[in-house]
């Protein structure tokens, strides 16, 4: 499932081509040994740390209900736009994305 993106040595980092992730789709990329999950909701892409801050569950396998991403292991859920965990002890790290020349770029 993981792929190595065309990651630059310095920030910002290209995570994926925008066309790679269609509406409703998702993709996991690895940047400098960090797993990042990208989700396309309603045509907009969002990048988050792919490792759940609770017990390390793989969020790329999580269930999405709107913008709410639920970890498949123990059920922590996060807003992928803000990382908000709805009162859990840790929020999810997010990476704001911008599209440059058809590529998704984030500060990682």
């Amino acid at each position: 499932m993981s792929e190595s993106p065309d990651a630059a040595a310095s920030q910002p980092v290209v995570l994926a081509d925008a066309d790679d992730i269609q509406e409703g789709g998702r993709k996991e990329v690895v940047v400098e040994n960090r797993k990042i999950a990208i989700f396309n909701v309603d045509g907009q892409c969002y990048a988050v740390n792919a490792i759940c801050p609770h017990r390390g569950g793989p969020l790329i396998r999580g269930t999405l209900d709107g913008y709410r991403l639920r970890c498949p292991i123990h059920g922590w859920a996060f807003d992928i736009r803000t990382g908000d965990s709805n009162g859990r002890p840790h929020d999810l790290e997010i990476f704001p994305l911008r599209c440059e020349n058809g590529r998704l770029v984030a500060e990682v």
Binding site: M1, R55, G56, G57, P58, R61, P72, I73
Partner: peptide, 11 residues
């Protein structure tokens, strides 16, 4: 792993 095909998880 946590799911088939993923890396090994010690827990």
């Amino acid at each position: 792993p946590d799911f088939p095909g993923m890396d090994t998880n010690l827990e």
